[in-house]
Amino acid sequence: MFKILKKRELSDVVTLFEIDAKDIARKAQPGNFFVLRIHEQGERIPLTIADFDKERGTLTTVFQKVGKTTYHLGTLKEGDFILDVIGPLGIPSHIENLGKVICVGGGVGIAPIYPITRALKEVGNYIISIIGARTQNLLFWEDKMRKISDELIITTDDGSYGRKAVVTIPLDELLQQEKDVKLVVAIGPTIMMKFVCKTTEKYNVKTIVSLNSIMVDATGICGACRIEVGGETKFACVDGPEFDGHKVAFDLLMARQRMYLDEEKIAMDRYIDIKK
């Protein structure tokens, strides 16, 4: 059982938890994720590690309420317990001083891009961050990202805050101006990562994305998370979750993410019925 030490609503649909998970926090590294299961009948879902405190033994996660499990998770309060927390999983980000790096976080993807950006900054990179969301109230961690970035660009799709644009517009401009960008790291909705990669491909800038495919055990047993990278089948859980974005078959990934839409609706409707 893992205690929720802190809960913050970052927006109507985005929630932050700080979880007491000493052993996992001690081992967590940027780029890792973890799996949780709320209760005995619950499903196992992967969530991103948005931050960790090795001293206090805490894990921070930020999740968006999209389906039954995440809605249920959002009803838990400070002091409540989560049945199972498993991690840290996945291969950590490769952190190296390359020079100039652009970090792109879209929507809830701002959370996992944060520890990676911080680590890249700590080893001496010049960091340009782009964070974007559909609208202002879905945006979070502007202050945290500003602290670890040399430059910060903010976009919203509707122009309610920052620049009215999707993240790929300032990214394209930057890549035109700055010829010495060595790496782009992008985390966000799959469609965003796809277009980030299309943009960076033009400039031949290496791009790392972190994929959020459906998982069950997340330790390599099942293969639910399989994707195609460079024409080869890979498992996001043990081979990833980070991959060379220019090699990822994003359309296949998006199709696989939609596999259970019908079941997700059944589960959600039933959950709302029970809540009534």
Binding site: Q41, R44, C222, G223
Partner: peptide, 28 residues
Amino acid sequence: NLNGIYSANEFLTRANLMKAYLFPEYDT
């Protein structure tokens, strides 16, 4: 990798470990 193709491991893990045969009583 089309939808509807499972590894036997995944199919069995969903059914046995996660009790997906009892969906939606069980979440998986």
